[in-house]
């Protein structure tokens, strides 16, 4: 991803302390120019503090933050070439939608006709044409979110920071906004640094993502890398659902002692009578409970030494299949390449 150019954002061994609390603990990473980079983690994991370090609302206690190759320690937010979409949108309540959007231009003393024209272009981009004169209080949550986006984009920042921008929206709206944000990012081609605690969102939108925990980065990689090859128990559990296989069960599944993660959808349920194909790991168990989830079903299988979750796609029949009855003895098989060894 990192081409020949200077990274858009670089963290070099950055820490940020609040009293004794290490909110950000010796974090290093690069964000390539034009990349959609997500910082994913539970609340309090340090991801928002990292975003605020880029924006300039926080200063690093140690280490260096660079934006386009320039150290930005001590540079105030208003002199940085980055803009932010805030979590609660932070629209100015006393200004109209249009005045909000053109605020950055007004500060730069762009003449009124010019900035009105550009504000209207921005409102077109975020599909809010014609709402120039409205007040933020007259808009829906989704519309406010778009105004915040337009306002942050009008200065043509080289890096756009987004702090859980879709957090307050309902599921349907969130999904359509994900696609839209992604297409706007492609259209204007600037770097997006996106903070979220929603792993689905991070997987769906990012070129790369960093998983944060306790102020540190547990893993950085493409969504597929992070999902398929989680390096730690935390990542395996936080990004998607997983079966953690330990102790004697690990011996039977993995062949060696250790901790393994297996994604529920990688496991196949077979009747005991089926011939066992070579190269597959297998354990026997009994069907426990089945939860019907629409497109998929979640099947709990009791095995010696624990319980394993299997997610099956409901292609035809699904849970209605005769052998998917509680108590039925079954064999669980999984390709060895999907058994991921993880650090505890």
């Amino acid at each position: 991803m990192v081409a020949n150019g200077v990274p858009a954002v670089r963290f070099e061994d950055v820490s940020r302390l609040f009293g004794d609390v290490r909110a950000v603990d010796r974090v290093s990473f690069d964000v390539a120019d034009g990349e959609f980079f997500s910082m994913l983690g539970p609340s309090g994991s340090g991801k928002t503090t990292c975003l605020r370090l880029i924006a300039g609302f926080e200063q690093p206690s140690s280490g260096h933050v660079q934006v386009h190759g320039i150290n930005v320690e001590g540079v105030p937010p208003y002199e940085r070439d980055v803009n932010t979409v805030f979590q609660d949108y932070a629209l100015f309540p006393h200004m109209s939608v249009g005045e909000n959007v053109e605020y950055g231009l007004m500060i730069r003393k762009v003449p009124k006709p010019e900035r009105k024209k550009r504000a209207e272009e921005m409102l077109d981009l975020v599909k809010l044409s014609g709402l120039y004169a409205r007040k933020p209080s007259q808009l829906s949550g989704g519309q406010r979110q778009r105004v915040a986006l337009a306002r942050a984009l009008i200065n043509h920042p080289r890096v756009l920071l987004l702090d859980e921008p879709l957090g307050a929206l309902d599921l349907k709206l969130r999904e359509s906004m994900q696609a839209e944000l992604k297409s706007i990012q492609r259209q204007i081609g600037i770097t997006f640094v996106y903070v979220t605690h929603d792993q689905g969102e991070a997987l769906a939108m990012s070129d790369r993502l960093a998983v944060f925990n306790h102020g540190r980065i547990e893993q950085i990689g493409s969504p597929a890398e992070v999902y398929d090859h989680p390096k730690s128990v935390f990542v395996a559990g936080f990004v998607g659902q997983t079966n953690l296989i330990e102790r004697e069960l690990a011996l039977r599944f993995g062949g060696t002692a250790g901790t393994y993660a297996i994604r529920p959808e990688r496991i196949r349920i077979e009747p005991l009578t089926a011939p066992l194909s070579p190269g597959l790991a297998a354990v026997e168990g009994r069907i426990g409970g089945i939860t019907y989830l629409g497109s998929t079903s979640r099947v709990l299988v009791a095995v010696d030494g624990g319980e394993i979750v299997v997610v099956e796609t409901n292609l035809e029949g699904g849970t209605a299949m005769p052998d998917r009855q509680p108590g039925t003895p079954v064999r669980l098989v999984v390709d060895r390449k999907h058994i991921q060894s993880v650090a505890a």
Binding site: G56, F57, P76, P77, V82, F86, D88, A90, N155
Partner: peptide, 13 residues
């Protein structure tokens, strides 16, 4: 919201 002040600074003020 305190974020209003940050938003203003963020936008160059």
């Amino acid at each position: 919201s305190g974020a209003l002040i940050e938003a203003s600074m963020d936008l160059g003020a």
